[in-house]
């Protein structure tokens, strides 16, 4: 088992004829992901790198009924691309695009939430994220596939390369990963830590979870409360940005300490006090998971809610 995606997952790529979309569609196919083809408005009916191209997500849906749409559309048009996939009822939308205006994402989230409230089951991962991978199953994103190894640890992260760092350690220690989800560095996004933690808790293959957060917002805190009250599996946490100055955006649009809120120190203390094993040295993420799993205390009782 794994979460959200596996060997049978069927994927289309929005923006497949663009530089990024094209490169990564091929890389995902090489990893073994079932990439069915892609969408570029105006290029329907052609083929690109051996992939069929459709004019719209609707055409792609009618032809192949995909499970996932992976989006590489430039930021100014990305909200439109996500909304099209929502309208076409694609169950999982993974948006890699960095730099989408936040008010566009406000509207996207509003539409997505409304559709789901009406009974649809559509999930969005990202934007501004590396995507999702189930090792030896499906790579749906831009992460380097070979650093992953199928295994016991679920990974959820707001970061890209920092996730690779953690994954690499887990792989080197032989623990491996069940699924890795990059939820993205933007302030308004699709799946959040809590959503992914809930899925990992239900997944029999996942024995522990690594949660990689960073400065800004309160999502890590909410996730810690969830972990304490609703999870039996251990969570190891890292928060980047202990040395980040307040009021400055550190690369990611969401990585900013504002009004004294969202500092790494606060978050780490909060996570610690809610039973998350907090690592202050990112070189020791893998080792900490190893120790937690080896301690035999990996399953813990739920606190009464």
């Amino acid at each position: 088992m794994s979460i959200l995606v596996d060997r049978s997952t069927r994927v289309i790529v929005q923006g497949i004829t663009g530089k990024e979309g094209s490169y990564h569609a091929v890389a995902c196919r090489e990893y073994g992901t079932k990439v069915l083809g892609g969408v570029t408005p105006g290029k329907g009916g052609s083929t690109h790198e051996g992939f069929p191209v459709w004019n719209s997500v609707f055409d792609a849906r009618d032809a192949e009924n995909p499970d996932v749409s992976l989006i590489f559309v430039p930021p100014a048009f990305a909200a439109d691309a996500i909304l099209e996939s929502i309208a076409a009822n694609i169950p999982l939308i993974v948006c890699i695009t960095e730099g989408i205006p936040v008010l566009d994402m406000v509207r996207v989230r509003r539409v997505l939430d409304a559709r789901n409230a009406e009974g649809a089951e559509i999930r969005l991962i990202g934007p501004n994220c590396p995507g999702i991978i189930t090792p030896d199953g499906a790579k749906i994103g831009i992460m380097p596939g070979y650093i992953h190894k199928r295994g016991r640890v679920g990974v959820v992260s707001r970061s890209g390369t920092l996730t690779y760092e953690a994954v690499w350690q887990l792989t080197q220690l032989g623990l491996g990963e069940s699924t890795c989800v990059g939820i993205g560095g933007d302030p308004v996004r699709g799946l959040n830590f809590i959503d992914v933690l809930e899925l990992f808790e239900k997944d029999p293959e996942t024995e522990a979870v690594v949660m990689i957060g960073e400065i800004g917002g309160e999502d890590e805190e909410r996730a810690a409360v969830f972990a304490q009250t609703r999870m039996t599996k251990p969570v190891v946490g890292f928060i980047a940005g202990l040395t980040a100055p307040p009021g400055r955006r550190m690369g990611h649009a969401g990585a900013i300490v504002s009004g004294g809120k969202g500092t790494a120190k606060e978050k780490m203390a909060f996570l610690e006090s809610h039973g998350v094993a907090v690592v202050d040295n990112p070189s020791l993420i893998g080792k900490t998971v190893f120790d937690v799993l080896a301690s035999g205390k990996s399953r813990r009782p739920l606190l009464p809610v």
Binding site: S159, T161, L162, L242, T243, D280
Partner: peptide
């Protein structure tokens, strides 16, 4: 550093 999250973590590790 390549990547924003890793760049922040690298700053933190220098301090550590």
């Amino acid at each position: 550093v390549n990547g924003a999250g890793l760049a922040m973590a690298t700053m933190d590790v220098i301090a550590l």
